[in-house]
């Protein structure tokens, strides 16, 4: 009963940002993390340039962003590395509102959640908010082997093209122009592995997320060139990336959302992106 009343109050508080930020109105989750002194943050495992391990060290844009968020509300960041499930709904269940099937507790907040109305409606136990970046798919070509990275898809027939297995870049390359590039697609376990293939000897071109391409260019600008024009018939126009909290932690979500906005405005978030070679793009208006 008490819990219900507190939640109702928190929801009312959520309507006015100041009240939620103040955290006085029975803000269960925000009070709890502040009392605990730590903010547990779920990030995807093996997800360069967002969150991955270099040796023992966990690094990446989402990791630094998480640390920044935690310290902005005077908390210590703790990371939970998430193995992705079949879809983001499974990830929200494991990392945000229920915990894993073998009993691992969920995190306070999950990074890198697509901000999409349909996704939010289908996953009402999580609150998705705080868009901090605009992602989309892009292409890069090996400078030595591809004369024109701006050419139309049929021009790439016969050239090995790299993509992450079971991703939109994979489906795109396998189906564009009636599937004529299908036997040229080389599959890799991750986007960065596909970018590395095009920077090395294995592939002539790669389609991956824009962040993966730009991050890959950081170390391979002499070998890779990014396509400037759009990819014809690309299946996704791009999406906003944000955070998610559990439905009873809306006050925490609101607080983090306002912190994110402040960190974008003062340039601290764009500076993180820059360090990883990724051009900061603000989320598109809905």
């Amino acid at each position: 009963m008490l819990l219900d009343r507190r939640r109702a109050l928190a929801l009312i508080g959520g309507g006015t940002a100041m009240l939620a930020v103040g955290g006085r109105a029975g803000a269960a989750s925000l009070d709890k993390v502040i009392a605990r002194g730590t903010l547990s943050i779920a990030v995807y495992r093996d997800f360069e340039p967002w969150s991955w391990r270099e040796g023992d060290r966990l690094r990446g844009i989402d990791v630094e962003l998480g640390e920044l968020l935690a310290s902005a509300i005077a908390l210590r960041a703790e990371f939970l590395e998430l193995i992705p499930g079949d879809d983001v709904a499974a990830d929200l269940r494991n990392a945000v509102w229920r915990g894993s099937v073998v009993g691992q507790a969920p995190a306070d907040v999950m990074m890198h959640v697509p901000v999409d109305r349909q996704l939010a409606l289908a996953n009402d136990r999580a609150v998705i908010l705080g868009a901090y970046y605009r992602e989309s798919f892009a292409m890069a070509c090996n400078r030595d082997r591809v004369p024109d990275c701006e050419a139309l898809p049929p021009a790439f027939k016969g050239r090995p093209l790299a993509a992450e297995i079971d991703s939109i870049p994979d489906f795109y390359l396998s189906s564009v122009s009636g599937g004529m590039l299908r036997s040229d697609v080389h599959h890799y376990p991750t986007g960065p592995a596909a970018v590395a293939a095009a920077a090395g000897q294995e592939a002539d071109g790669v389609v991956a997320t824009r962040a993966q391409i730009e991050h890959g260019l950081l170390a391979a600008r002499d070998r890779l060139v990014q396509r400037k024009g759009p990819l014809p018939m690309m299946l996704s126009p791009g999406w906003n990336v944000g955070i998610a909290v559990k439905d009873d932690s809306r006050d925490l979500g609101d607080r983090l959302e306002s912190v994110l906005a402040a960190l974008v405005a003062n340039g601290k978030i764009p500076a993180i992106f820059e360090r990883y070679g990724v051009v900061y793009r603000p989320p598109a208006e809905a």
């Binding site: 697509p114 991703s167 939109i168 299946l235 791009g238 999406w239």
Partner: peptide
């Protein structure tokens, strides 16, 4: 299903 997401990215499910 054109609007699905997997591993933090848009996906065609």
């Amino acid at each position: 299903e054109p609007i699905t997401y997997k591993k933090g990215a848009a996906y065609l499910g």
